[in-house]
Design a protein around this nucleic acid. Structure first.
Length: 560
RNA sequence: GGCCCGUUGGUCAAGAGGUUAAGACACCGCCCUUUCACGGCGGUAACAGGAGUUCGAUUCUCCUACGGGUCACCA
């Protein structure tokens, strides 16, 4: 077989050579140690947590090494492509401040554009590049055309289909597959000509020379030394529409873009042998690889599963909706990504997380469970460090989109809202009441008459006690009291009705009292705020104002 | 089923031959206290199992078990 003739037959219009492309995309002129990375998602829908997880690694490695970070869109599967996915992706990246140097961007008018000298950055626009290398491989006898249709292949491998995977007899399927592959390798030039003359579509397959039984040692920067079987599968390089498969595009693009480090999920590990073979066939130097651990969840059977679409926390939009600020997500991501991040954070409470010295060796090897408790803890801490103004602004931004009525309420009296949000804020031990923006309404609802609801008093106290305490308090309440004076009144009331006015007394002999001053303040709290948990009561009353305090006391007494 | 990866408390994890096996979250208790919180102190709780190497294995090797991933003209 004359492979050059075959290559010309298959790719008559390809005139560029690999050498031309080497010139078009020259090696990057970067300082020693600079990492060239790329985030390469496929635009198949929502932006997910795992994607951002990887993008953060890309960002940290590139920015901290003085390297280059590009955004490449892997849109080689038109079937699965979703409208607007690229835009959503770019927006989400921007929202999180994950800046990249090159790649697909959004123009001012909202259309999709790009920047950088190594483009195009959408794979669908790079087909002429892939053809150059496909032609080269064919001309070297390392790849060949396959004219079998999908239906024919499916018929041969009758059971090897994802939907039926559970019922598949794997040993049979593997044999059928192997046979089909070998059969596909046998063809004559005349057959090819006949197919082409008939206009039959074809794919380009690699001619695998590996042996499944032989192992290759490969070092992954996260996983360490791996032992993989050689590739013996004639996988598809170019689909019948001329669009490359992931494998081929990966090799060609990452070579031409001069990628030094490939960061991707560990679900790619099984196809690594394919990539090793491709890079060797193509004569490309392999980049370093970081196969990151997966984020898992517990499914309904109690097993760990890859986190996916339906799961809370999978879509990045979920975080926005629940009201987690982007800094919180970043910090949580960093705690998952690098085992010593929290330690660093405690030692450097005021340093921006972008300055955290990210290290590959601290990346986790095994998958981890998504943990909302932890996320919430990070969130409470981050928010507790904010000023009331910052909180107000962010809550308002959130509410405008997700709770317009609440946004109106907040915007009506900004100073009032800020005053509320300022309670217990600042100082060394700020309160940590707020976890997510979506919880703020509930947190401050009792400050708004139309949202105020009366809840239960603590159990175990006769309502006469409560009623009497409230009545006495209503009688002596003076809005001009300072904190100490105000509380002294509560102590006096406690004494009047047989409750310990001092905690110490209560501790000494709880049996001598009906309760303590803390209980009295709780009665007042419930009367005024409607709940048992609220920020500092004196501050609350000050902000509510005399009129409303009196109203609420009166209605509370009446309700008892 | 083949292949690959993984397995330290409920969760995230440090430790890389000799440690009382860190820390964080969650949970519990105590303290502080103007409630609830915050904070402080403390507690419960772990090296999947079995062989081997070794004076000594959580740490090295092998096997088993379990979990995960993957086996497309999807990425």
């Amino acid at each position: 077989m004359n492979y050059n003739e075959l290559a010309e037959l298959l790719f008559p219009n390809v005139t560029l050579t690999p050498e031309d492309l080497e010139e078009r995309y020259p090696p990057r002129n970067l300082p020693e140690g600079a990492k060239v990375v790329r985030f390469a998602p496929s635009p198949t829908g929502y932006v997910h947590f795992g994607g951002i997880y990887q993008a953060v690694v890309d960002y940290m490695l590139a920015s901290q090494s003085g390297g280059v970070f590009s955004l490449r869109i892997e849109d080689t599967d038109s079937q699965r492509e979703v409208d607007g996915a690229v835009e959503a992706l770019v927006r989400t990246l921007a929202q999180y401040g994950i800046e990249y140097d090159e790649g697909v961007i959004l123009n001012e008018d909202g259309s999709i554009g790009e920047r950088g000298a190594y483009g195009p950055y959408k794979q669908s626009q790079r087909t002429e590049l892939y053809a150059v290398y496909a032609k080269k491989l064919v001309s070297e006898g390392k790849a060949y055309p396959g004219f079998a249709t999908e239906e024919e292949l499916e018929a041969i491998q009758e059971t090897d289909k994802k939907a039926e995977i559970k019922n598949t007899d794997w040993s049979v399927a593997a044999e059928q597959k192997r046979a089909a592959m070998l059969a596909g390798r046998e063809f004559t030039m005349d057959e090819v000509k006949a197919h082409l003359a008939a206009g039959n579509p074809f794919v380009i397959r690699i001619l695998a020379d590996g042996d499944q039984e032989k192992k290759i040692k490969f070092t992954d920067m996260v996983k360490g030394v791996l032992e993989l079987p050689e590739n013996d599968e004639d996988f598809v390089l170019l689909k019948s529409d001329g669009v490359p498969t992931y494998h081929f595009a990966h090799a060609v693009d990452d070579h031409l873009m001069r990628t030094t480090h490939v960061i991707r999920g560990e679900d790619w590990l099984p196809s690594l042998p394919k990539h090793i073979q491709l890079f060797r066939y193509l004569g490309f130097r392999m980049p370093k690889y970081l196969h990151t651990a997966q984020i898992l969840k517990i499914d309904e059977n109690g097993n760990k599963k890859k986190i996916s679409k339906r799961d809370r926390g999978a879509k990045m939009d979920d975080y926005a909706e629940m009201g987690y600020c982007t800094d919180v997500v970043w910090e949580y991501l960093l705690t998952l990504l690098n085992s010593n991040y929290e330690e660093w954070r405690m030692a450097n409470p005021d340093v921006h997380y972008r300055n955290y010295p990210f290290s590959i060796k601290n990346m986790s090897v095994s998958g981890c469970l998504f943990d909302f408790d932890k996320l919430n803890d990070v969130s409470r801490n981050v928010i507790s460090r904010m000023t009331a103004d910052q909180v107000y602004t962010q809550v308002l931004d959130w509410a405008k989109i997700y709770d317009p009525e609440f946004a109106v309420l907040l915007a009506e009296k900004p100073d009032y809202a800020k005053e509320i949000l300022a309670i217990g804020r600042g100082g060394k031990k700020p309160r940590k009441d707020i976890t997510v923006w979506s919880g703020v309404k509930e947190y401050m609802s009792f400050f708004y008459d139309n949202l105020f609801e009366r809840g239960d008093y603590p159990e175990g106290f006769p309502s006469e006690d409560i009623k009497r305490a409230l009545a006495e308090f209503a009688a002596v309440y003076n809005p001009d009291d300072d904190n100490t004076t105000w509380f002294a009144r509560l102590k006096a009331i406690a004494g009047d009705i047989g409750y310990a006015p001092e905690m110490k007394l209560w501790k000494q002999s709880p049996e001598s009292y009906r309760g303590n001053v803390g209980d009295i303040s709780m009665f007042v709290r419930v009367a005024i705020t409607g709940r048992q948990n609220s920020p500092d009561l004196h501050d609350v009353m000050r902000i509510l104002g005399e009129k409303r305090v009196r109203e609420r006391l009166a209605s509370a007494i009446a309700a008892l």
